[in-house]
């Protein structure tokens, strides 16, 4: 995973609430067996007509807006657990998603792919939308080390939460599997020591 560095970028505003992962990447695109190419189908049904031509009124098709930061309405990423949603967002080129509220599974999936979900207050979010409406060139700066997001239009900053472990992972480009693999002995010890009444291991008839 790439190391996460401080980003200053213009933004793509999507002021819609409850954007579910079926919108981020519709199910018919989940037939692939690798992680490539999902960015082309990010928000496919909002972005393209039936014949595949772009819908001019969707923000990703509006050349006025660009950047590596997606700013969305509250409860972003609800619904299906498909990690393809994070692959699509990352594949398109977004490094950060800003919202006032994220669904749990999406948040984990984003972090596991080096994409930073930044939770801001509803007021801060609203100010971003307003600033971008006024001037589409408005930039945000996201500093993970200091856990600060700054709206460069009004210089307002807000700190954001992230657990210390995940922060280290992102800053150093490490993932959870690396960590878990380093704990193999602990896992085997857990299996040996746990109460014989509460493990399913050894109870599976045909798999003993």
């Amino acid at each position: 995973m790439e190391k996460f560095k401080t980003i200053t970028s213009s933004v793509v505003p999507l002021p819609i609430e409850n954007v579910d992962t079926d919108q981020i990447i519709p199910a018919r695109f989940l037939k692939a067996t690798d992680k490539e190419g999902f960015g082309d189908n990010l928000f496919a049904d909002w972005r393209y007509q039936k014949d595949g031509t772009p819908k001019s009124d969707f923000v990703l098709n509006n050349p006025t807006y660009a950047g590596s930061i997606l700013v969305a309405g509250k409860n972003f990423g609800s619904g299906s657990s498909r990690e393809h949603a994070a692959w699509a967002i990352g594949g398109y080129g977004f490094k950060v998603v800003v919202s006032s509220f994220f669904a749990d599974i999406f948040k984990n999936n984003a972090l596991n792919n080096g994409i930073l979900p930044v939770v801001v207050s509803p007021e801060f979010l609203n100010d971003i939308f307003k600033a971008v409406k006024k001037d589409p060139k408005t930039t945000l700066t996201v500093n993970l080390q200091d856990q600060v997001i700054t709206n460069n239009a009004n210089k307002a900053g807000e700190t954001f939460e992230i657990n210390a472990y995940k922060k280290e992972c992102l800053l150093n480009g490490l993932d959870d599997i690396d960590y878990l693999l380093s704990k193999k002995e602990l896992i085997e010890e857990f299996e040996r020591k746990r109460s014989p009444l509460n493990p399913p291991r050894g109870t599976l008839g045909e798999c003993k």
């Binding site: 994070a86 984990n108 959870d176």
Partner: peptide
């Protein structure tokens, strides 16, 4: 429910963070 990275973790270690 979990994402695919987490599926990989479970397959590899039977654990999840």
């Amino acid at each position: 429910g979990i994402g695919t990275s987490e599926v990989e973790m479970v397959l590899a270690t039977q654990c999840i963070l």
